[in-house]
Write a protein that binds this DNA or RNA. Structure first.
Lengths: 110, 110
DNA sequence: CCACCCTATATAGAAATCCGATACAGTGCC
DNA sequence: GGCACTGTATCGGATTTCTATATAGGGTGG
């Protein structure tokens, strides 16, 4: 699973609110991603085994809307998502980053 | 400027340590990015006006190594980088995200 | 009825991005 | 000469993003 910002947004939304099940349009609004980005991400997450999907069982005529496809992180997905987001947080400083690197290199004449 | 994780890593490294000037190999070690990823990122940042670059003025024979190309964030770059990293931080929860979205949607039968 | 908007999911195709491989060049060492 | 190290940089295939577009049923208004 390659971590990208859209993937991180989806994982973040799926992790929030006690891992409540989400459906596509819901995730589009939460993440701000267009459907053409979101659905491929969801498919990749499923292929990676991080995400499970199931059709909502309702009669469209009764519900007055199309059936939704609900997504829920697997146990592995929850774990992986937490770890991935933690790594992301590591490079977004709160005060000063100072993630163990080399000390400032020689300043140019400039 | 499209924000991606490699771009964020570079910005983070450039912001750290009081915005000390950095050169390519230095940034490769700090960010862990391969040169094939790093240099295109640096070029894009320059094209966006976020980054300034200048050749170190040394005699390679005297220094015992090739001249370095130093990179420093512009004023605009510093501002933009801080903002971009803040947005990244927003989606990497520390405790609970709860970034104002819709409340949990109806749970599936499943 | 028919147009139109809303909820939903999904794909096509062009553009952008990432990353392993490769290139180039000078220094230092054996 | 050969090899390792410091540096910067590009190429090309694979992946990813994103703008359109497709599909389909429900509800509303003329």
């Amino acid at each position: 699973m390659r971590m990208t910002i859209p993937v991180a947004k989806v994982l973040s939304a799926l992790l929030a609110d006690a891992e409540a099940p989400r459906y596509g349009l819901d995730l589009m609004k939460l993440t701000g991603l267009p459907s053409g980005t979101l659905y491929p991400v969801l498919h990749r997450l499923q292929a990676a085994g991080w995400l499970a999907a199931d059709w909502e069982e309702v009669d469209p005529a009764t519900a007055g809307r199309p059936a939704r496809r609900y997504y829920l992180l697997t146990a592995e997905g929850v774990h992986a998502a937490r770890q991935a987001l933690a790594e992301l947080r590591a490079l977004a400083p709160d005060g000063g980053t100072s993630w163990g690197g080399a000390e400032p290199t020689g300043v140019p004449a400039w």
